[in-house]
């Protein structure tokens, strides 16, 4: 088992953004995580990556209990993530952004630069390498976040709406990129709103609603699930 999250709760005051969620993930899977706005997907990611300390529950990653460890420790163990709203280092160039990630496994500048260039080529950012990161638009920033995460040479990559808001031409390229990352041996969890993307990328989907996993299965199975339809459309629509 690569990742084992049991009974995860994340409370903000009296409100439970994640309310007892479980996730078991085998190495080299690619699973989708869907759910309506505010379902708790990003908060769940924050718990998995050490960004938020769960109120309850335990998380094991590659056999190590990581529940209370800081994000940097998760990264060292091989867990990388992107953010729903990209946080790129605006004071750096595109290559320097990626080098920050590469330094995790390559302490020397030259090796880190070489790793960064390799990842930039893989993610299709080679031509923008020397531009300031501020020169990138939203698609570029999302791609840069993926590149930066890949430069840490992760075992597991969490993508939080990496394709949302991309123009359709970019979506194709992004799907292709996610597939190539998966083929390179990285396990992935992708949060995505666009069902079509989920259909094309994965055979296993978890549906989040009000902080819980309410359904699990193939994309076709979950979209046919009455509980999922209710969650998305509300009770009245289902009646």
């Amino acid at each position: 088992m690569l990742l084992e999250a049991r009974g995860i709760v994340k409370a903000f005051g009296a409100f439970h953004a994640v309310a007892g969620a479980d996730l078991l993930l085998e190495e080299s899977e690619l699973i989708g995580l869907i759910g309506p706005n505010g379902a708790g997907k990003s908060t769940f990611f924050n718990c998995l990556s050490g960004d938020a300390r769960p109120t309850a529950g335990t998380i094991r990653f590659r056999g190590t209990e990581v529940t209370a460890l800081p994000p940097a420790a998760h990264a060292r163990l091989g867990l990388a993530r992107t953010f729903q709203v990209p946080i790129v280092f605006d004071t750096m160039t595109v290559r320097e952004n990626v080098m920050v990630g590469a330094f995790l496994r390559h302490p020397h500048r030259r090796a880190a630069a070489a790793k960064a260039d390799e990842v930039l080529a893989f993610t299709g950012l080679a031509e923008q390498a020397n531009l300031p990161a501020t020169a990138l638009g939203t698609p570029g920033r999302k791609r840069l976040e993926i590149a930066r995460a890949l430069a840490t040479e992760p075992v597991l990559l969490l993508l939080d709406e990496a394709l949302a808001g991309l123009p359709s031409a970019e979506v194709e390229a992004a799907i292709d990129l996610v597939r190539r990352i998966h083929e390179s041996g990285v396990t992935l969890i992708v949060v995505e709103h666009i069902m079509e993307v989920i259909h094309r990328l994965t055979r296993r989907v978890l549906v989040f609603h009000q902080g819980r996993v309410i359904a699990e299965g193939t994309p076709a199975e979950v979209t046919a699930d009455p509980a999922v339809i209710t969650a998305y459309l509300g009770r009245r629509a289902h009646k």
């Binding site: 990556s49 050490g50 960004d51 800081p70 994000p71 940097a72 990264a75 060292r76 990388a80 993530r81 953010f83 946080i87 790129v88 280092f89 605006d90 004071t91 750096m92 320097e96 080098m99 920050v100 990630g101 330094f103 995790l104 880190a112 976040e145 930066r148 995460a149 430069a151 840490t152």
Partner: peptide
């Protein structure tokens, strides 16, 4: 690099193992 990353975005820096 790590110091500049911290200055530019602590949350992202941490997620990259800083």
């Amino acid at each position: 690099f790590y110091l500049r990353a911290i200055g530019a975005g602590e949350r992202a820096a941490q997620s990259l193992g800083v």
